[in-house]
């Protein structure tokens, strides 16, 4: 029932993905927002406080803060504290390279924070191919620092064909540091577009990963693998795309999009500097289009009621059309194999 109630669209997002800056000290090959250099129009501290005020007035429960690298901002801890003071739960994605003892001790005092540290391999050979030379060592230092200062955190890994063989050791490594492993889905947006062939998991890997996920209840995925999540796991939570229904994305300059992977001109809803956020949420044509997606090809599939065609961002980046099914849907891939065999 919850999925049906949410599908109609809520009065406000449950959570908002907030890309706080494009500035980043790393150049990860799969970066969804092609981050590196900051934009001159990015929000300053007061803009950030005003946005937090707007979101809390609407009773948004949580902001997922990413970028770019949020900790690269000198005012980031102030912004975080302000969000918490206003009752907003935060989930911060970081590359870990700015975490030191001082920051870890400050983070340990925050009760409304989820922290995700990105790690894309269990050794330098794999991780550094994705996140850059020397990053494995620095991330491990950050993880160790957080663990020794008793900061709860999860390790976030974007599943790629490079790190797929390392899922078990990654889970073990997370466990060793008292952290959860969260596996995210690779999307060909940002720099991921240019590196899709090298990074996207192949069909066999997706099949095996789906099975692996079914055996590891404690590994988290958010809602990003709804196209291949097992029925057993589906019962653990919402398993459809939440874009425009439960969530949306705000860029470092205040542009509003349905999700972080659809930060493209056709999906730009407006800007919070010049438009009322609630108005955009309620009336945007883009948001309403996503709320009413009806993927024709999937209508006869037994899983359609729960997955609703999968990830529109994957469809857009593959077919330039969000009315198409998720290209990594295992049901469709299996059907295609069957047709070939016949």
């Amino acid at each position: 029932m919850s999925t049906k109630l949410a599908r109609k669209g809520l009065r406000a997002p449950v959570n908002v993905t907030w890309e706080m800056t494009f500035k980043c000290n790393l150049k990860c090959v799969h970066c969804l927002s092609d981050s590196g250099t900051p934009n001159k129009e990015e929000f300053d501290r007061d803009d950030c406080f005003r946005l937090i005020d707007q979101l809390t007035d609407l009773k948004v429960f949580q902001v997922n803060i990413g970028g770019g690298e949020p900790f690269i901002r000198d005012d980031f801890m102030d912004i975080l504290s302000y969000a918490h003071k206003k009752g907003l739960v935060t989930c911060v994605s970081t590359n870990g390279t700015f975490i030191d003892t001082d920051i870890a001790q400050r983070l340990a005092r925050l009760k409304m924070l989820y922290l995700q540290v990105s790690l894309d391999g269990v050794n330098a050979e794999v991780n550094d191919r994705i996140r850059g030379k020397g990053t494995y060592k620095r991330i491990l230092e950050a993880i160790s620092c957080l663990a020794s200062n008793k900061v709860p955190f999860s390790i976030n890994t974007v599943l790629t064909r490079l790190n797929y063989p390392q899922l078990d050791p990654l889970r073990d490594l997370a466990k060793e540091y008292g952290a959860e492993l969260r596996v995210s889905r690779f999307r060909p947006s940002g720099r991921g577009k240019d590196n899709r062939n090298e990074l996207a998991p192949d069909k066999d890997q997706l099949e095996a990963f789906a099975e692996w996920l079914g055996q590891h209840d404690l590994v988290r995925t958010g809602d990003s693998f709804f196209c291949l999540t097992s029925e057993k796991r589906r019962r653990n939570g919402l398993d459809m795309c939440g874009a425009a229904k439960m969530t949306c994305c705000i860029s470092p300059t205040g542009d509003v999009y349905p999700c972080a992977f659809l930060q493209e001109e056709p999906f730009k809803v407006g800007n919070v500097r010049s438009m009322n956020f609630k108005e955009m949420w309620d009336n945007s044509i883009v948001f309403n289009q996503l709320r009413n997606l009806n993927i024709e090809i999937c209508q006869t599939c037994s899983r359609y009621e729960s997955c609703r065609g999968g990830c529109p961002a994957m469809a857009y980046h593959t077919y330039n059309d969000i009315d198409m099914p998720d290209p990594e849907c295992l049901e469709n891939l299996r059907k295609a194999d069957l047709k070939k065999a016949i």
Binding site: M1, L5, K8, R11, V14, Q62, G87, V89, M112
Partner: peptide
């Protein structure tokens, strides 16, 4: 736990998880 009004009734957000609960 936080709660807010929706057209269907009340929506609860539990930070642990986080999880959502719908009360129609």
């Amino acid at each position: 736990v936080q709660v807010r009004k929706e057209d269907f009734g009340l929506l609860f957000y539990k930070m642990k998880g986080p999880r959502l609960f719908f009360l129609p």
